[in-house]
Amino acid sequence: MPVGFKALADRYDIALAQPLRVESEIGTARLSRESDGNVENRYSQLEDEDMAERVVEAVRSAFEDREMGTGRE
């Protein structure tokens, strides 16, 4: 299962050589599980409804771009 550097550092009690550049606003309380090679991530509900709507729209847009082959990488 692919994981981020922070998850690896926490799991193996390793000090990072340099601080992580991004602190996630939406992913601070994520629950991940793997089943049949698929990873399912669940995030806590955002209290700020405007922020929640912007996040949902950004994710939808990213998937639409990917399906159309116009994703930005």
Rank of each mutant, 00 (worst) to 15 (best):
M1R: 08
M1H: 05
P2V: 11
V3K: 14
V3T: 10
G4F: 00
G4Q: 05
F5I: 11
K6E: 07
K6Y: 00
K6M: 00
A7F: 01
A7R: 12
A7D: 08
L8I: 13
A9S: 14
D10W: 04
R11L: 11
R11Q: 06
Y12P: 01
D13T: 12
I14G: 03
A15C: 00
L16A: 13
L16V: 08
A17C: 10
Q18V: 07
Q18C: 04
P19F: 06
P19N: 15
L20P: 02
L20R: 09
L20F: 06
R21P: 01
V22K: 13
V22N: 09
E23M: 11
E23Y: 06
S24H: 08
E25K: 15
I26A: 04
I26L: 07
T28Q: 10
T28C: 05
T28W: 00
T28L: 04
A29M: 12
A29K: 15
R30Q: 04
R30L: 12
L31C: 06
L31Q: 14
L31W: 10
S32K: 10
S32I: 05
R33V: 15
R33S: 14
D36N: 12
G37H: 08
E40D: 08
N41A: 06
N41R: 05
R42Q: 09
R42P: 00
R42S: 09
Y43G: 02
Q45H: 06
L46P: 00
L46M: 13
L46T: 00
E47Q: 12
D48A: 02
D48P: 01
E49R: 15
D50M: 10
M51E: 07
M51V: 07
A52S: 10
E53Q: 15
R54S: 02
V55P: 02
V56W: 04
V56Q: 09
E57I: 02
A58D: 08
A58M: 11
V59W: 03
R60M: 05
R60C: 04
R60H: 04
S61H: 13
S61V: 03
A62V: 06
A62E: 06
R66K: 12
E67T: 06
T70E: 02
R72L: 14
R72S: 14
